[in-house]
Each structure stands twice: as structure tokens, then as C-alpha cells.
């Protein structure tokens, strides 16, 4: 019983980070109906960003996140104009392949520069014990930051003008254009925010686990699952989806070998897609 509680707690804490990792993907997906296949490599870039700033310049990893965020925002805007803008109205295959080619470019260059060997950010805040459970403080900080960023994004989307523009474009791009919303700039901004979230999530993950340049791929797949769990374009939905996934990953190993986790995850993913493609908590986009 105690063991189960620990697993759930572990899963919950991790779930916040999963949710943050997925948020960028679901935001871009929800706003412009583009499934960003470069999401994973961008998460990896976030990991390496924090790693380089920390190991190279000795900057505190949590401070480094700010620089990584700015980098992510700019990178996303560049990617949008280079690879996405031209095919934004083309059939799905075009945006899928365009973003996938960006993934190939990032992974290719990343492997050439960093090789595929594992790195880690050696920065521990210690841990504390709760009953029989030992919880690393890094995880608690990561979960808290994820929550904070989600809340920030939520408020940004509701309270600021550009945030409201983003929601308007997500709702109906044509109508928003007619009402004078500069849709191309808003799309570029959304893409930038999406990649910013991905790099920040990557940076946080780097403070928890060792990683390679390919590590983002795992989180990209998880983000797909979370996207259909939580629905699109809604940060709170992504966080909830992340929590569900985290808890599942915590609980399943107490009943069966841990290697069954991905089987159940992906079967669940396909089933939800079949039944409710708009996501469990989502209610939009066809």
C-alpha cells in the first residue's frame, strides 16, 4: 500500500513535467492544426541548452531556463517562417513532413556536435523522506515550475491581447483575419511559444534524468498520448493529460512488469483517438 502511494506520488510529480512537455505540442496543434514532428528534437535542444549553460558557464540550471526559453521562442519563430508558413494551408502531409525535416536537421546537426553519448546536469537539491518514500527535491521544483508556467500560459491566453488573438486564430482563422487579427504573426508567435514550452520542459527534464540528443523523441511520443488525453490548445488539459500519464506510469508497474507500460499507453492512445479524437477533455477541432 505504501509502495502504491509512493508510485502515485512519483507519477504525479513526473506527470507535471510530462504535461509541460506536451503543452507546446498541443498548443501548436490546437492553434494551427499542425502536428509538430520536430517537437522531440526541440525538447532535446532545451536539455542541451541548460546543460551547456550549467556545465560551461556555471549558470544555475533554473536561471538557465530563462535563456533557454528566449532561445526557444526565437527558434520557433524562425522554424515557422522557414518551414511551416509556406505550407500552412496545404494538406496535412506537407506540414507533417516539413516539421519532420526540421527534426532531421536538428537531430543531424545535434548528433554531429554533441554525439549520441549521454549527458547529465549534476545539480542536486537533495531529497526528503515522507514515510518510506524518498523524494528528490529537483522533482518537486520541476513540478512546481511546470504548474507555475501552466498558470502563466493560461493567464496569458485569457488576459493579454496577443493571447486572445491566439485563441481567436485557434477558433477560426478566417474569421479572426476578417476581424483584423494579423494571422501570420499570430501563427508565428504561437509556434514560438510552443517551441519555447518544449525547450523549457526539456531544460527541466535535464535536471531530473540523464539524456542524449535523441532523448526528446520519447517525450514527443508521450506528448501525442497526452494531446489526445487532454485535448488540444488548452494548457490545463495538457497538464491533466500529463498527470494521468504520469500516474499510469507509476501504478502499472505495481501490477505487471514495467515493460508493459508502453503497450498499455499506446493502446489507450489509439482507443481514445478512435472514440474521441478531440481529446478526453477537449471539445474542439475536427
Amino acid at each position: 500500500m505504501d509502495f502504491l502511494l509512493t508510485s502515485i506520488l512519483d507519477g504525479l510529480l513526473l506527470g507535471f513535467v510530462y504535461g509541460l512537455a506536451a503543452m507546446g505540442l498541443t498548443l501548436i496543434w490546437g492553434v494551427m492544426n499542425v502536428i509538430n514532428l520536430s517537437h522531440g528534437p526541440i525538447i532535446s535542444l532545451g536539455m542541451f541548452g541548460v546543460y551547456l549553460l550549467f556545465s560551461g558557464l556555471g549558470i544555475n540550471p533554473y536561471v538557465a531556463l530563462i535563456f533557454v526559453a528566449i532561445f526557444g521562442l526565437l527558434l520557433g519563430i524562425v522554424i515557422y517562417f522557414v518551414a511551416v508558413n509556406r505550407v500552412i494551408n496545404a494538406p496535412h502531409l506537407s506540414t507533417l513532413l516539413a516539421t519532420f525535416s526540421v527534426a532531421m536537421i536538428i537531430t543531424g546537426l545535434g548528433t554531429a556536435v554533441f554525439s549520441a553519448s549521454p549527458r547529465n546536469v549534476d545539480y542536486s537539491l537533495g531529497s526528503f523522506t515522507l514515510g518510506s518514500a524518498t523524494i528528490p527535491i529537483n522533482r518537486i521544483v520541476a513540478a512546481a515550475l511546470s504548474m507555475l508556467i501552466t498558470a502563466g500560459l493560461y493567464i496569458y491566453l485569457r488576459r493579454t491581447r496577443s493571447g486572445r488573438y491566439i485563441r481567436a486564430v485557434a477558433n477560426n482563422r478566417n474569421a479572426a483575419e476578417l476581424m483584423g487579427v494579423p494571422s501570420v504573426r499570430i501563427l508565428a508567435l504561437s509556434f514560438g511559444i510552443g517551441t519555447m514550452l518544449a525547450t523549457v520542459a526539456g531544460g527541466l527534464i535535464a535536471t531530473l534524468f540523464p539524456f542524449t540528443i535523441l532523448a526528446g523523441g520519447t517525450y514527443e511520443l508521450k506528448s501525442f498520448v497526452i494531446g489526445v488525453l487532454g485535448g488540444l490548445g488548452n494548457p490545463v488539459g495538457a497538464l491533466l493529460g500529463g498527470l494521468i500519464l504520469g500516474v499510469l506510469e507509476g501504478i502499472i508497474p505495481t501490477f505487471m512488469p514495467a515493460t508493459w507500460v508502453p503497450v498499455i499507453e499506446f493502446i489507450l492512445f489509439v482507443l481514445i483517438l478512435m472514440v474521441r479524437p478531440q481529446g478526453l477533455f477537449g471539445a474542439k477541432k475536427s
Binding site: 527534426a103 537531430t107 543531424g108
Partner: peptide, 10 residues
């Protein structure tokens, strides 16, 4: 090579 292939695909 992966990056070059990606750029070509793009």
C-alpha cells in the same frame, strides 16, 4: 548526412 537529407526533404 541526416541534416542534409532533412534540408533536401524540406
Amino acid at each position: 548526412q541526416l541534416a542534409v537529407a532533412g534540408a533536401l526533404l524540406l
